[in-house]
Design a protein around this nucleic acid. Structure first.
Length: 805
RNA sequence: GCUGAUGUGGUGGAAUGGCAGACACCAGCGACUUAAAAUCGCUUGCUUCGGCGUGCGGGUUCGAGUCCCGCCAUCAGCACCA
């Protein structure tokens, strides 16, 4: 039969319009139906537009969402814009356009591009983090955190460019110098708003046991939180009344401590100023250390540096021994207490430091060779040189020493977390204003909730200030206000929130995006939350995923949301690399624009390729040639219409493979093995061509299976074949296990594990029968000629292995 | 450095401890065509035809791409990019 040609440029816009006009993918507010909430990370609408990486996650969740609709669920699959942030602000400064205007343009561009890919987002629920109706509630959440003591101000080091005289993001610091001007960047201390995420460390850890995240995400989060059990121990000093508290995970090695190390920023240095003989050298060392990042400082491979505090020593509380105190930058103020006892015999970094500076080693756990390297094993060692601990295992010694320290009142058991509090201030314009005012009389006063949002003033100058304060600080009309408490003159907080703020609760807002009396109505939040399935990048595992879980756990605790955890299931996609195998970036010149690909092969083929190109969770280089192969596949699907047998039954020849394919595609989609699901459909189509014709029933099933991946072509063919009013609300196909049963199977014949031939046997042959009788099979006889069989191993449906001599 | 992952033909990849290379891409040959494109068909890991082959070296097992130990290489994150 003559059929019209397949022209994606005609059918794709046609169906996109029909879906929009019929509200096909809008979530229903019929809360009696079973729900499915599928989520992708909302994009940052950058000026460069969509790149081919975005559609990977989008299409994957789109497949799941479309399949769920066909399975009868009320599906929420929303989209929004994470639109505050540094790149937009920098673009705006450079090009003299207001960030709000840039943002609007970028969002419009992104939306247009996204719509072309045919993703079934519910665009009526769009969320934009820069919309005052949205950030009003971001500010509200901040106030709740503040009221519950989880937001506080603290001195924190920031990156400070000595030439631009402004604070820099880590990303703007390249190799220790300012990305813009190349001048040296130092760490400068500034008062910053902090969120006490550490108070939720244990809850964030425990919650992981209740959710279905892929294992590597759970492991990364657990390691990031970094719970470790140890002890805090007080060391007296030989000068002054001060004590130094140290944290250690190895209190059992206390008798092996030969010196102490303080972080160069440790406040004790100031307090002991008068007792320290070489105070100037200590300050010089601290200034040197300020030039390095924590990351550089903690590096194991680097040469250890340090300076000894002269004039003061520390006293080991268990044996009264005096040990020297050093400053070294490998001890960070941000972890533990900023001070350690150094046990060079049993800690690698201490060992390196001690070897370099000639500090003594005392072996307290026997079993290694401490002259060669630190002995860090905690399983097999036995305590020595440790007074009352001698002869104990490491585990026993830990218990015993903690008991002793507690008894003496010089230490205690301590759970410590690597997780640090969240630096929440930015000295930037393009972010949510932090809703507090500073009053000379009343101090920090939160803006009353009914006065939210505190809107960003629309002004012309949002460039960084020389003082390092936020650009908002020079907008006196906005800054000067009255105190909500006493009515006197007060000043607004001029720091803004980080981009993380808006992205920490957007998934809640989708449930009820236009709510005006809260983050969303209780009814909507109760129905939709938690997110059933959240797919995103591995790069968001430790920060965004933890921050947003923290906010959600907190909102649950104050009764604002019922579900305890925000995400029931979390999966991850791999990054799409350029054709040269490198990360796509403008500077490398290897960026692929989806618009170009869609122009060339159509959105459906683009989607098929995005899903077919490789394992979903792996990084894959892009290949435009391979993408064209996917277009060929759709052409072949289209041309199946040339030879159709008008029956809804499956033909005998294709019945088995039809059911196999339904099963494979159904299960593979759920496991996000999209590449093998598509391969199975390709195999089915190849088989249909081998048969020479398809029945209308076979074609209908193929179209339904393919619809989530290639929605436009399948809608068009469904209509052309007169199969109904829209494939997207057809029921998902089911397979019949009975149709999969085979009477005969081919198995491999091995001799001593090596393949020697293949034979056909009845599919239901039992292990006993096979092991007894397969030796007599004529083919097997040939293979085994002249050998004596010692043992037979039979694996049903797979192989038989003869151990023979 | 720390944490997590990855390594299989010319390329992307497939394979509950059980027939390595499914499905594609590229390339080559053939058909159709005045010709080209498109399409269709065939070939396609290496091989001295014995075999050899899943980054390298060991191990467990009747059997290892898959499990264990030790290396090497690459990628992601490292808290102010999001």
């Amino acid at each position: 039969m003559e059929i019209k040609p397949y022209i994606p440029a005609e059918i794709e816009p046609k169906w996109q319009k029909i879906w929009e006009d019929t509200h096909a993918f809008e979530a229903s507010t019929d809360y009696s139906r079973p729900k499915f909430y599928g989520l992708i990370e909302f994009p940052y609408p950058s000026g460069h537009g969509l790149h081919v990486g975005h559609p990977r996650s989008n299409t994957a969740m789109d497949i799941i969402a479309r399949k769920r609709r066909m399975e009868g669920y009320n599906v929420l699959f929303p989209i929004g814009w994470d639109a505050f942030g540094l790149p937009t602000e920098n673009f705006a400064i450079k090009n003299k356009v207001h960030p709000a205007i840039v943002t609007k343009q970028n969002i419009d561009h992104f939306r247009t591009q996204l719509k072309r890919t045919g993703v079934s987002f519910d665009y009526t629920r769009e969320v934009d983090t820069t919309d005052p109706n949205y950030y009003r509630w971001t500010q509200w959440i901040f106030l709740q955190l503040y009221k519950h003591g989880l937001a506080y101000k603290s001195e924190m080091p920031i990156n400070w460019c000595t030439s631009c005289k402004c604070g820099l993001a880590n990303e703007e610091v390249v190799g220790g110098v300012c990305e813009r001007c190349g001048s040296q960047v130092i760490r400068k201390v500034k008062k910053q708003w902090m969120l006490k995420i550490t108070q939720y460390a244990q809850k964030l850890l425990d919650g992981l046991d209740t959710v279905d995240f892929i294992e590597k995400v759970k492991i990364q989060q657990r390691n990031w939180i970094g719970r470790s059990v140890g002890a805090e121990v007080d060391f007296k000093l030989t000068a002054g009344d001060e004590k130094v508290r140290i944290f250690t995970t190895r209190p059992d090695t206390l008798f092996g401590a030969t010196y102490m190390v303080l972080s160069p920023e440790h406040p004790l240095i100031e307090k002991l100023k008068d007792s320290i003989v070489n105070y100037d050298a200590c300050i010089a060392y601290r200034n040197e250390a300020a030039k390095k990042s924590d990351f550089e400082r903690a590096e194991l491979a680097k040469e250890k540096t340090g300076v000894q505090l002269e004039g003061v020593k520390a006293v080991n509380p268990v044996n009264g021994k005096e040990i020297p105190i050093w400053l070294s930058d490998y001890v960070l103020m941000s972890y533990g207490t900023g001070a350690i006892m150094a046990v060079p015999a049993h800690d690698t970094r201490d060992w390196e430091f001690a070897t370099k500076f000639g500090m003594p080693l005392i072996e307290v756990v026997a079993g290694g060779d401490i002259q060669k390297e630190a002995y860090t094993d905690i399983q097999d060692g036995v305590m020595v040189n440790s007074d009352f601990l001698n002869g104990m295992t490491v585990a026993q010694a830990k218990e015993a020493i903690i008991e002793k320290l507690t008894e003496l009142g010089v230490g205690e058991k301590k759970v410590n977390f690597k997780l640090r509090d969240w630096v929440f201030s930015r000295q930037r314009y393009w972010g949510e204003p932090i809703p507090v005012v500073h009053c000379d009389k009343c101090g920090i006063v939160p803006v009353p909730e009914d006065q939210l949002p505190v809107t960003l003033p629309m002004v012309d100058n949002y460039e960084p200030t020389d003082s390092g304060e936020s650009p908002l600080s020079v907008m006196t009309d906005w800054v000067n206000t009255t105190c909500p408490c006493c009515g006197g003159a007060a000043k607004r907080e001029t720091d803004t929130m980080p981009q993380w703020a808006g992205s920490s609760w957007y998934f809640m807002r989708y449930c009820d995006p236009k709510a005006t009396c809260g983050i969303g109505s209780k009814e909507a939040l109760d129905y939709w939350m938690p997110v059933d399935w959240y797919n995103g990048g591995m790069e968001h595992t430790t920060l965004h995923l933890l921050y947003s879980r923290f906010w959600h756990l907190f909102l649950h605790d104050i009764g604002a949301i019922s579900a305890p955890e925000p995400y029931q299931k979390r999966t991850s996609h791999g990054m799409i690399l350029g054709e040269n195998g490198e990360k796509m970036s403008k500077s490398r010149g290897n960026v692929i624009n989806p618009d170009d690909i869609i122009d060339e092969i159509g959105a459906d083929a683009f989607r098929v390729y995005e899903m077919f190109m490789g394992a979903f969770d792996q990084a894959i280089p892009w290949s435009t040639k391979s993408a064209k192969g996917c277009r060929r596949f759709l052409d072949r699907v289209w041309r199946l219409q040339e030879n159709i047998v008008d029956t809804m039954d499956y033909s005998d020849k294709l019945n088995a493979i039809m059911h196999e394919t339904i099963k494979k595609v159904t299960l593979d989609f759920e496991a996000m093995k999209f590449n093998t699901a598509i391969a199975a459909m390709m195999t089915l189509v190849n088989e249909m061509y081998a048969v020479g014709s398809v029945t209308k029933g076979e074609l209908a099933t193929l179209l339904k299976l393919l619809n989530p991946v290639a929605p436009h072509i399948t809608e068009e063919m469904w209509e052309l074949q007169g199969l109904g009013s829209g494939i997207h609300h057809e029921p998902w196909p089911v397979w019949d296990d009975a149709a999969l049963v085979k009477t005969e199977v081919e198995i491999a014949v091995q001799v001593a594990g090596k393949i020697r031939g293949r034979i056909m046997i009845p599919a239901d042959m039992t292990k006993e029968t096979a092991e007894k009788e397969l030796v007599n099979h004529p083919e097997v006889q040939k293979i085994l000629a002249g050998k004596t069989v010692m043992k037979v191993i039979f694996v049903p449906g797979r192989l038989v292995n003869f151990i023979a001599r």
